[in-house]
Amino acid sequence: MRMMKMTVYFDNNATTPLKDGVKKAMAEALEVYGNPSSVHACGREARLLQDMARRNVAAMFGVRSEQVIFTSSGTEANNLVLRGYFACPENLEKGSKLVISSVEHNCVHKTAVDLNRLNGVSMHMVTVDRNGIIDIDDLKLTLEKGNVGLVSIMHGNNETGVIQPLDKIVALCKEYGVRVHTDAVQTAGKVALSFKDMGVDFMTVSFHKLGGPKGIGAVIMKADIDMECHTSGGSQERNRRAGTENIIGIAGAGACTEEWQVSVDKMQNQIGPLRNKLEKGLKQLSNELYIIGESTNRVPNTTNVIVPGLEGETAVMSLDMAGFCVSTGSACSSGRVEPSRVILAHGIPADEALCALRISLGWQTTEAEVDAFLAAFGEMLGRMQKAS
């Protein structure tokens, strides 16, 4: 049963609507039923479709096709890099410590904890400042102590949109001969990304964040790195990831990256100004309201706003009833709502962290929708003031 369509969707960091070209490509791929590993005509047809999509993805990031490894999601892609890298004995000999930041996505944070608990890979978590930018001095001190095998720092944060100074991070790691992975799930399609210019060794992406389908992600990596496959089975994806490929999802991934420059330009030139208008309007509604990471570089579509006293969960439900989809980083555990560890890492008190509200615009967002949201947000604040 299809749910009632919401009026305005402002939760695009969670997922995005499929673009028309993606729907068309996936519909056509439904007719391609061969297994791409088969050598007969039906298999070759599937392999051709897969290869064409891989070339599109490679072109978006300025790499060769063989550097693109398809996965089922950004989460699997991050797991593949971290687990696969440290599963290789040669890599462990170079360094058995994994360095992450305190604001990583759960799939990186929890994998680092698992590696430490199960595989003996030690972990160091680099702190961030009030704006969410990592402490470069902390990173440098950790590298100086030695035994670091891999540094994994996300490019753009999924909750706040804050973009890390990857150029400084990579330059510092190169001084110590340490490889770098970046989770670019929230920046791909929103800012221009050149794998070569970024200088990282691994980059991970997820296509449903940029108008593509759910269930398909990718690792972009340098070709000369040793990495073990962490699933047993066939030799798909150049022995990096076993299992029959999701041809329909891969076709959608290829389609959503065909016009990547158009998507980036729209984010920068249209959605960015709309985000700025949204934030200006929000600040005019309350003197207590503040925006996390406002003074630093962020992806152009993301706002994480705190109104002390207005819990994020309450705001999400109130705005949902008004026809707006937004989200909060808080998590429900054993019946209790817990503040986001990412927001807490900024040094924000727990009671205020519970008030964090993420508003993430998309390629389909209009100015009229921003105006309507500001009106609804103002009405919500008005009700809150009357009730207090």
Rank of each mutant, 00 (worst) to 15 (best):
N131G: 11
N131Y: 07
G132D: 04
I134A: 03
L139D: 06
L141F: 00
T142W: 02
T142R: 09
E144N: 07
E144C: 10
K145D: 11
L150F: 11
S152H: 03
M154K: 15
H155F: 13
G156M: 07
N157Y: 02
N158S: 13
E159C: 02
T160D: 08
T160V: 06
T160E: 09
T160S: 15
G161R: 01
K168C: 12
V170K: 13
A171H: 01
A171D: 01
L172H: 14
K174D: 15
K174P: 02
E175N: 10
E175C: 12
G177E: 10
V178L: 02
V178R: 05
V178C: 03
V178G: 02
V178I: 04
R179Y: 08
R179G: 00
V180H: 13
T182F: 02
Q186K: 09
Q186E: 13
A188Y: 01
G189Q: 09
K190G: 01
K190D: 05
K190Q: 07
V191Y: 00
L193N: 09
S194F: 06
S194D: 14
K196T: 08
K196N: 04
D197P: 00
G199Q: 08
G199S: 03
V200A: 13
D201R: 06
F202V: 07
M203G: 08
M203S: 10
T204R: 13
G211S: 05
G212C: 13
G212V: 15
G212T: 14
P213I: 10
K214P: 00
G215S: 12
I216V: 15
I216T: 13
G217M: 15
A218V: 00
V219C: 11
I220P: 04
M221V: 01
K222Q: 13
K222H: 11
A223V: 11
A223H: 14
D224C: 14
I225R: 10
M227L: 15
M227K: 11
M227W: 02
E228P: 07
C229T: 14
S232N: 03
S232R: 00
G233S: 08
G233N: 06
G234M: 04
E237H: 10
R240V: 14
A242L: 07
T244V: 15
T244C: 09
T244I: 15
E245F: 00
E245K: 05
N246A: 02
N246E: 05
N246I: 00
I247P: 00
I248N: 14
I250S: 05
I250H: 10
A251T: 15
A251W: 15
A255L: 07
A255P: 10
C256H: 13
C256W: 09
E258R: 15
E259D: 15
E259P: 02
Q261T: 13
Q261C: 05
V264F: 02
K266E: 02
Q268Y: 05
Q268W: 04
N269S: 08
I271P: 12
G272S: 09
G272Y: 09
P273S: 06
